[in-house]
């Protein structure tokens, strides 16, 4: 390692790699937490996917009908 004339460029390149990879990891982790939190919030309000309704929650008939409809939509989308 005697010719380290361009060590600053090498360091900058590795720093750029660390930043890009770091941003990707942060994006993936934070997004995972955010989606988990939103699902938990919605489930607290009594909205569950139909395939998960093993614990039968008390629901109004109207809500049940709405659930039917959106479950079909989700089946299409999934």
């Amino acid at each position: 390692m005697e010719t380290t004339a361009h060590i600053d460029f090498i360091a900058a390149a590795y720093a750029a790699a660390v930043i890009v990879v770091g941003v990707l990891i942060a994006w993936v982790t934070l997004d995972y937490r955010a989606q988990g939190r939103r699902i938990a919030e919605l489930e607290l309000q009594g909205f569950t996917r139909r395939s998960d309704t093993t614990s039968a929650r008390p629901t109004s008939p109207a809500k049940e009908a709405a659930r039917e409809q959106t479950a079909e939509q989700s089946a299409e989308q999934a």
Binding site: Y32, Q35, I39, F47, R49, K63, A66, R67, T70, Q77
Partner: peptide
């Protein structure tokens, strides 16, 4: 996948 679940649940919430 989780984001799409959230979307489905939100649609349910809106139609309910």
């Amino acid at each position: 996948i989780l984001r799409r679940r959230v979307r489905t649940l939100q649609l349910m919430q809106a139609s309910a």
